[in-house]
């Protein structure tokens, strides 16, 4: 269905952005394998990016509905 396609595209986009941002932050000098320090950083970064996404989602949708009420 169109709806589940959008939900899937949304989840994929979130994973793509998370990988991109966390690789940039945690793997600054790519070597022959991921070190344990890099893996710890990636795990935490994943959790933080998901939280950031939720904070932004909530703040944005709350603001949009507030704007709609006042206009």
């Amino acid at each position: 269905s169109v709806r589940s396609e959008i939900a899937l595209a949304n989840a994929q986009e979130l994973m793509n952005k998370t990988n991109e941002k966390c690789f940039a932050k945690c793997v600054t000098k790519p070597s022959s394998s991921l070190s344990s320090t890099e893996e710890t950083c990636l795990t935490r970064c994943l959790q933080r990016y998901m939280e950031a996404f939720n904070i932004v989602s909530k703040t944005y949708t709350a603001r949009i509905s507030k704007e709609r009420e006042t206009s």
């Binding site: 994973m15 998370t18 990988n19 966390c22 690789f23 945690c26 793997v27 790519p30 070597s31 394998s33 991921l34 893996e39 990636l42 994943l46």
Partner: peptide, 10 residues
């Protein structure tokens, strides 16, 4: 290689 490792790790 490490970017693909990162995707699988995530």
């Amino acid at each position: 290689e490490r970017f693909l490792d990162t995707s699988l790790f995530m």
